[in-house]
């Protein structure tokens, strides 16, 4: 049942339709097992943004405060897009490689275990 309502056919207003974001789409980015950041972060990004720009501009904004950030090897990072293994194409746009509105992009850095190797 999509909803239990007094009147049949009730439809709720979609609060976060992509049209509400002024040409951007929401993308979430998360660095696995690095709890210095309490949660993944949200960014409104143009769908045409190439993935290289996410790595160059968005990642430092999101995670640059971490003492291990400068040691990240983006070549060996392992990625998940909406829960599925994913190999980013740096020159292609978000849209072209399936990073859609409210997609979740996660990466793991196998050689970095966090501050004090404690997943922080």
């Amino acid at each position: 049942m999509p909803v239990y309502a007094l009147n049949p056919g009730y439809k709720g207003e979609r609060m976060d339709r992509v049209e509400n974001f002024h040409g951007n789409q929401l993308v979430y980015v998360g660095w696995d097992e690095h709890r210095m950041f309490c949660a993944a972060k949200a960014f409104p990004l143009p769908p045409s943004m190439p993935f290289a720009a996410v790595i160059e501009n968005i990642m430092p904004e999101a995670f640059g405060q971490h003492p291990e950030f400068s040691q990240i090897n983006w070549e060996t990072a392992e990625w998940l897009l909406d829960g599925e293994p994913f190999k980013p194409q740096l020159e292609a746009s978000l849209e072209a490689q399936g990073v859609g509105h409210k997609s979740m992009v996660r990466f793991k850095t196998p050689e970095l275990q966090g501050y004090q190797n404690a997943g922080v």
Binding site: M1, Y4, Y10, G12, R14, M15, N20
Partner: peptide, 20 residues
């Protein structure tokens, strides 16, 4: 999943900020 029609209406502060 039990009542998606209800929770699509969540007023999520982070998203509302990005919507202006």
């Amino acid at each position: 999943d039990e009542e998606p029609e209800k929770y699509v209406q969540s007023w999520l502060p982070v998203h509302q900020i990005f919507q202006g």
